[in-house]
Amino acid sequence: MAKIESVNVKKIFKIKKGGNQYDELPALGGVDLKIEQGEFMVIVGPSGCGKSTFLDLVSGLTLPDSGTITIDGKPVTGPGLDRAIVFQQNALFPWRTTLENVEFGLESTNPDRDNRREIALDYLSLVGLSGYHNHYPHQLSGGMKQRVSIARALALNPDIMLMDEPLAALDAQTREFLQRDILRISKESHKTVLFITHSIDEAVFLGDKVAVMSARPGVIKEILDIPLTAEQRAEDDVVATKEFVQSRLILWKLLKEEVVKVQESQIRFQNQAVAQSPARGIGNGLINAVRVLTKI
């Protein structure tokens, strides 16, 4: 049985138009995806394709409009401690020290104070931040903050780590170091990881598999196995290997089509907006008014 299984999952957003009228915006158009135990699955897709929406659905923070998501065969009905999320940025509580942030999730499950502290300190050192436990988030760099976020998620010892572009806001060097740490930690702790990114390099470097999502409404367009071994990934020149370069190229071609679609639809949308400009609205209003008057 797959660890996480998504069958024909659809999600439609309702956007208020004013009054009781809503516009429907289909975000996900039937996502099918299977993630095995211990697998590192990366989802890439053009911006706005619904990657994060899908992650929210797996986390249980929102529920699908149709289709089902199951974890170990059980449907997701809400958030659970078997899944922990690492958000993009600034999701640390600024009023808590790093240690207290890492302890946060444990507070509702582990009543033993000293034990909580011990666990939190362990995870802080796992992400390379021992000695920073009394710092407040604003005293840390962006990369350090994300390390704390990862420690906070890991501290719950979840089966599944859900990572929503956790490195997107970081500079290139910090990003590379953190990618390596994430890879190491996830393999050592045998976590199942669902990782969202818009960086193809990141996807190839991290993923056992990379799923390419289509432009909105998002569906899984293709799933690519990344043939890199753990040894290859550990090397500094992994990006120069034949496997890396080929995977990267295939992914880029798949993704490019979708990015072009997004751009085209944006241009269409702009044209529409011009067509429905206020001047035109007033014109229509006048015509309607004349119609009403002539009827009388």
Binding site: P79, F87, N90, F93, F104
Partner: peptide, 29 residues
Amino acid sequence: VDPVYIKVGRSMGLTKFNLFKKVLLPAAL
């Protein structure tokens, strides 16, 4: 209050009361 704080709290299975006490209250302080 930044919605991401609420998301973090909810994803960690906080009860409504705890969400208020541990997230909303300090964030609004």
